[in-house]
């Protein structure tokens, strides 16, 4: 297809789990690369040295502010990409890198890591550790529809992406961890005990006490999944009421 969008995978300080998650779409990834997106940049996947112009930059990892090359790279990614997506907890909220204290050979002074939105404007957040293959897939399909779809498809994609774009602009989301769920949902009387947060947590840090989530904060890695998965962090009826149609569109696109 001629009308594909261009996508790059920009690797900051992350474990490559996000990239593996993208690949875990298996045939879905092939479908995306065949029909919707050309991969124009990616350390391990494309033989391109410098970050090129692209429609969508999928950024994985936090930025080490003592690593000047990384700081330059993230600025370049912002300049060259129309849409910057923070893929995964490290890019979106700092995740496990928040606990880094340096000391690693051969740059022991590399000790301070921030989510990319601390340094540049980000358009879309995909929290979670690892972010799920299906979530990355959905955003890829929606980004394609937003840039190349019919007017109706553009409107739908914009609606779908809106909460993920709002997360990217929300300073709370770039510091998300269990406390965020606590402060933004439970403490303000919105929790109804559905358990989505506990199901979403990759490290099983959340249990239910008196019908409400309680976090083992020592286990929490700051991935932000619980907060954004919660139906009471954001829930847009104008999107959710279209649940069946949107699912059909995504499934149709992956056929």
């Amino acid at each position: 297809m001629a009308n594909k969008i261009t996508v790059g995978h920009v690797h900051m300080s992350g474990c490559t789990g996000c990239l593996v998650s993208l690949a875990d779409n298996y045939l879905g990834l092939i479908k995306i690369l065949d029909d919707y997106a050309d991969l124009v940049y990616g350390l391990t996947l494309a033989d391109v040295r410098h970050i090129p112009e692209m429609d969508v930059a999928l950024v994985e990892g936090s930025v080490c502010i003592q690593d000047h090359e990384s700081v330059e790279d993230i600025k370049t990614a912002r300049k060259k990409a129309k849409i910057v997506v923070a893929v995964g907890g490290c890019a979106a909220s700092g995740n496990i890198n928040r606990f880094d204290r340096g000391g690693q050979h051969n740059q022991p002074q590399h000790e301070s890591y921030v989510p990319i939105s601390d340094l540049i404007d980000v358009d879309v957040f995909i929290p979670g550790c690892a972010p799920t293959p299906q979530m990355i897939r959905n955003v890829c399909v929606m980004a394609y529809l937003l840039l190349r779809g019919s007017d109706d498809q553009k409107a739908l994609a914009a609606k779908y992406l809106k909460p993920l774009m709002a997360l990217a602009k929300n300073p709370i989301a770039s510091k998300a961890n269990f406390n965020t769920l606590m402060q933004e949902v439970i403490n303000v009387g919105l929790c109804m005990g559905c358990g989505s947060c506990a199901g979403a947590c990759p490290v099983r840090a959340i249990s239910m006490e008196f019908g409400k989530p309680q976090g083992a904060r020592d286990l929490c890695i700051n991935c932000g999944a619980c907060y954004s998965q919660c139906p009471r962090s954001f829930f847009h009826f104008e999107v959710m009421d279209e649940y069946e149609a949107i699912t059909d569109i995504i499934n149709g696109a992956m056929k």
Partner: peptide
């Protein structure tokens, strides 16, 4: 109903729900 909202959000926005949507 609220749980069904959680299920549908998990399907449309499977942020921490690997493998669940399909």
């Amino acid at each position: 109903p609220c749980q069904i909202q959680g299920v549908r959000k998990a399907q449309l926005y499977p942020i921490g729900m690997r493998g669940v949507p399909d």
